[in-house]
Structures are given as structure tokens and as C-alpha cells.
């Protein structure tokens, strides 16, 4: 250790373990300038607080308005001897209940939900999702073959189980996906959005589309014995 000259100066020594010295590397992609250059800043008080209060007030007004018009449901006292037909889970689980209609409980009730949660957790840890390259930016021909094979296998699987309410939204998302592979970079600017979507975008959009369709079907289109009903025909729930 070199002796300190004054109380402000920390010591420098030749022992790298005791006195580590650092060199800063600025690589092209993460230069300090780009990171720090995120635009103008405003004081949270009052700019953010004001906006948050307005959001809160609007939310409470809407909530109170609806709560005055709509009534929370209450049925008969619970009776283990009288099973309603159909017995439905809360709406946010009706997608799962719809899957249970097609697949064995282990698959629909345990494996699929577990996989979905695991998939959510790992999203940020995969480089494909982080970089967000457009799906067709790489080897287009190869990727097209891969996606077509996955699609055909998936559709065949769903058809074998007759899982139509999963199959239809799957095809509805697969259509634009395959279509987007034929879009030329120099083509219509209107199609640019579709052409530049990364794979994570397609997978999430597929997941959301299927979930929304399953939830709507489970809520409105399923009646006694989980048979298909038309909500406007008055039977079912």
C-alpha cells in the first residue's frame, strides 16, 4: 500500500487483488450515450402523481357506476346432492375446462397449465425473444419448412382429438403467419407490420387468440353435458 497523501485520495497499489483497477470497455451496442439518452425527464411531483390520481378517479367512477347497475350473482345454498348441469368454473378457468372436454385431465388440467406458466417465466431468458429479429429475416426457406411442419403436426393432433375450438383459432393465426413469409421487403408499406414480427410475437398472439376463443366458448356456448349451445336460444345456463 502506498501511503495516503491526504484524506481524499484512496490508495493505489500494484497488488491487483488488494487494489483492483478497472478499465472500461464501451462496446458498440451498449454505449453509455445510447443508454442514457432516453429523452426528457419530468418531476414525478406533480406530473406523474397527477396522472395517477386521474387514472384512479376515472377507475373508481366507472367501477361505482357499474356496481350500481349490475348485481353480483347469488344462487341457492350449496347442496352437494344437486349437481348443476353444466357445473362451470369461474370464467378465467373456462378455457381450461374447455380443454378438459377434449384432453385427459392430466394433459389439460396439469401439464398444459404448468407448461404455460413455465413458458411465461422463461420468456425473458431466451435470446430469440430478447433480440426480436423478424421471423423471416434469417433463412426464410428453412424457417418456412419448419413452421409448416409444426403447423401440420399441430393441426393433425388437434383434429385427432376433435379439438375444433382450439383448431379454428390456431388456423386463424397460422394463416397470416404463412402469408407474411411471402411479403417482400420492398413491397407494400401497409404489410410492413406483419412482415417484421418476431417469432415471440407470433407465439404470444396465437396463445392469446386461443385463450380468448376458449374462454368465450366456455362462457357462452357450452350447455348441459358441455354440449354446444347458442347463447341467444335461451337454454344452457
Amino acid at each position: 500500500m502506498v501511503e495516503k497523501k491526504n484524506s481524499y485520495e484512496t490508495g493505489f497499489g500494484s497488488d491487483a487483488l488488494k487494489n483492483p483497477q478497472r478499465i472500461v470497455f464501451i462496446t458498440k451496442k451498449t454505449s453509455a450515450k445510447v443508454k442514457g439518452d432516453a429523452g426528457r425527464q419530468l418531476m414525478s411531483f406533480p406530473h406523474l402523481l397527477l396522472r395517477e390520481s386521474i387514472a384512479f378517479q376515472v377507475m373508481v367512477i366507472v367501477l361505482v357506476g357499474i356496481a350500481l347497475l349490475w348485481d353480483a350473482p347469488l344462487e341457492q345454498l350449496a347442496n352437494p346432492l344437486v349437481t348443476p348441469n353444466p357445473a362451470k368454473a369461474p370464467w378465467y378457468f373456462l378455457g381450461l375446462q374447455e380443454l378438459l372436454h377434449y384432453f385427459p385431465p392430466l394433459v389439460a388440467g396439469i401439464i398444459i397449465p404448468t407448461l404455460v406458466v413455465v413458458a411465461f417465466v422463461v420468456i425473458p431468458y431466451f435470446n430469440v425473444n430478447v433480440q426480436g429479429e423478424p421471423l423471416w429475416a434469417g433463412n426464410r426457406a428453412l424457417r418456412f419448412k419448419v413452421f409448416l411442419s409444426i403447423l401440420v403436426a399441430l393441426v393433425a393432433f388437434l383434429a385427432i382429438f376433435r379439438a375444433w375450438t382450439v383448431l379454428v383459432p390456431t388456423v386463424a393465426v397460422a394463416g397470416p403467419l404463412l402469408f407474411s413469409s411471402f411479403l417482400k421487403p420492398e413491397g407494400q408499406p401497409a404489410w410492413k407490420f406483419l412482415r417484421t414480427r418476431p417469432v415471440s410475437w407470433w407465439v404470444m398472439t396465437w396463445f392469446i387468440t386461443v385463450s380468448v376463443v376458449l374462454t368465450l366458448v366456455g362462457t357462452f356456448f357450452r350447455g348441459p353435458g358441455w354440449s354446444w349451445v347458442w347463447p341467444w336460444r335461451g337454454h344452457g345456463v
Partner: peptide
Amino acid sequence: LSYTGYLLPWDQLAFWAITVGTNIISAMP
């Protein structure tokens, strides 16, 4: 939170929704 609250009114809706839901758990090996 939402699911556990669903049982509390103890009406038919609550009872059967929780029965259906928790039956799924028994499918776990």
C-alpha cells in the same frame, strides 16, 4: 385470490366451481 374468494358465498355456483376445479388437482400423478 379470485378463485379462493369464489367459494366464500357458499352457494351452488361457489360450491360446484370449486368442486370442479379441485377435482382437476387429483389428476396430478
